[in-house]
Design a protein around this nucleic acid. Structure first.
Length: 420
DNA sequence: TCTGGGGTCCTAGGACCC
DNA sequence: TCTGGGGTCCTAGGACCC
């Protein structure tokens, strides 16, 4: 049996952990640049604040209902996520961390699953102060639906179990197809067109139709809903196949230097992530975009190139990224977004050296040491404490974060203070 | 004034090979 | 008039997820 443990309103719950005064208040968390709503506490959902809505459109609601507003603080959420996952690891030797706020556990061999799930829930609450819901079922896709039921149906007490020998169809059949894991906006639209609206409708579709229109992934989803497991627990860490850093600028940038500084920073960030997972990249892509909301014909340009030798060196990759930027940027445009993407990743240790290396092995070693020092300093003193000059001293692309909470758990100067 | 970021997987189609 | 068959690899684009 698979259990899916999902943190309730995770980012909003994180913001409440060190703010007991907000325990019963509506709380929302905003995306980068304080652009739109990406998380809402239960109380905020009840006020009718939709997911993803631009912040400026709900300012009146915020004022009227005294909603607590936070800029996204991903450091804090990452740190609290680790605490939750460590707690969950006590409950099964087999766990898959699926996202920042979700994990699958293998609960095979547990007799009293209901009691076990309740204990798990209370333990996470007590140890981390984060509320979670638990769904248990014979397949991952069904566990997702069980979790959804645990969250939304009254009387479930945060736990919902689909035993294979029990008639859980009564619960899932009426559910809407867009609750199914793997059926998103487009498929929902397509399915509704042919009159398929409930889980039951979807299950009864001929598999030929599903295969034709939703490919093998759709077919897998259908089978999983019937109780046949087709997805297994992925316990092993797999390195990422692509790494990207992209940002919307708080204000449009109309100078070449401004965009160069942004792209330099993104390249540096991508390299830091590459080194963290011990990978090197062959291919680099740079993209820029003008304002897609205000311009009638916004410009989206992207360009890629491959390196002779894969690298995770900030100087090498930044140089290449700036070269590419020069080719893709058009003058007299107001840029609103840019990004750097690296793909064709290979493990650091298995580098294929070129026949005629451009630099000596000694120089490479020196460069690697330099990167290690940079990573250490930035880890200790904060991102960007030391950086290439091309990233700029006072860059124009700085993010807007007017409502950021303290880094309670990761910065000694921001730990909560108790006064008596 | 104001609209996020970072990933995965799958398929179709083109280039190229023998 | 009529134009093979069977592969591989790569890329772009579209779907999905949180």
């Amino acid at each position: 049996m698979f259990a899916l443990i999902d943190c309730n309103s995770f980012y909003a719950s994180c913001e409440k952990v060190f703010r007991p005064d907000l325990t019963h208040s509506p709380v929302i968390v905003l995306s980068n640049n304080d652009g739109c709503v990406i998380a809402r506490s239960q109380e905020a959902k009840a006020l009718g604040i939709p997911m993803g809505i631009p912040f400026f459109k709900i300012k009146h609601l915020i004022k009227r209902h005294n909603v607590a507003v936070f800029s996204a603080n991903f450091r804090l959420y990452g740190s609290l996520s680790a605490r939750v996952m460590e707690t969950l690891a006590h409950f099964s030797p087999h766990m898959e961390i699926y996202s920042i706020d979700e994990a699958f556990l293998d609960l095979s061999g547990i007799d009293d699953i209901e009691g076990y799930a309740q204990t798990l829930r209370h333990t996470v609450q007590q140890w981390t102060n984060i509320p979670v819901s638990v769904g248990v079922a014979p397949t991952k896709t069904l566990a997702k639906l069980a979790n959804h039921a645990a969250k939304t149906k009254s009387g479930m007490n945060g736990v919902c179990i689909f035993h294979p020998d029990q008639d859980f169809r009564k619960i899932i059949n009426p559910m809407s197809i867009n609750e199914i894991w793997g059926i998103g906006k487009q498929y929902t639209k397509q399915l509704q067109k042919i009159g398929v609206t409930s889980v039951e409708d979807f299950i009864s579709l001929p598999s030929g139709w599903v295969k034709r229109n939703m490919h093998v992934t759709g077919l897998r989803t259908q089978r999983e809903l019937l109780g046949e497991p087709h997805l297994s627990l992925e316990e092993q860490y797999t390195p990422k196949q692509g790494i990207c850093t992209a940002r919307t600028f708080s204000k449009a940038i109309n100078t070449r230097v401004g965009v160069q500084e942004a792209v330099s920073s993104f390249a540096a960030n991508v390299c830091r992530k590459l080194r963290k997972q011990h990978s090197c990249a062959y291919k680099i892509t740079v993209f820029v975009q003008t304002d897609s909301f205000r311009e009638q014909h916004p410009y989206y340009g992207y360009i890629s190139d491959v390196l002779n030798t894969p690298s995770n060196d900030t100087v090498t990759i930044t140089k290449k990224a700036l070269e590419l930027l020069d080719k893709v940027i058009k003058p007299r445009h107001n840029y609103r977004k840019a990004g750097v993407l690296v793909t064709n990743l290979v493990p650091e240790k298995q580098l294929q050296l070129p026949l005629f290396p451009p630099s000596s092995i000694d120089e490479d070693d020196k460069r690697q040491t330099l990167m290690q020092v940079i990573d250490k300093l930035n880890h200790k003193w904060g991102k960007g404490s030391i950086h290439l000059a091309t990233q700029g001293i006072k860059p124009a692309f700085q993010m807007k974060q007017a409502y950021r909470s303290p880094n309670y758990t990761t910065n000694l100067w921001e730990v909560p203070v108790a006064t008596i």
